[in-house]
Design a protein around this nucleic acid. Sequence first.
DNA 1: CCTATGACAGACA
DNA 2: GTGTCTGCCATAG
Length: 124
Amino acid sequence: MEGERRDMEFERRAKEIIKAIPRGKVATYAQVAALAGNHRAARQVARVLHSSSDKDRLPWQRVINSRGGISLKRGHGFEQQRRLLIKEGVCVNRLGRVDLDIFLWEPVGTRMAAARDFLRKLTR
DNA sequence: CCTATGACAGACA
DNA sequence: GTGTCTGCCATAG
């Protein structure tokens, strides 16, 4: 009951955040999860993208992993995601890597590098 | 209830 | 840099 509502809320917020990622920028699964209220729910962000991208018109291509890489496998979306990002102005090399120092979306008031350190100390 | 599975992430060798 | 391991947590069977 209560937990179920919390999950729905997380999912709703995650979608809003994903929609807010601007063209030419990318966000990480963990970043979206943290902004949506649960820094440990990166896998749930991936699940949301997998299940709702189509229905909710999410700019799914703008979400990549924390290593700055495309997580989809070759032959299973990798090529399309790379193509879409490049079309939006995000440089993706042949291995599917993006330079987060340049292309990571940093919403006003957030600094991911600092936020990561903060969360690490907090959860240690 | 239990196990397996992920478009993940961090730590460490 | 790579590969492995562990933690994570909703979902599916």
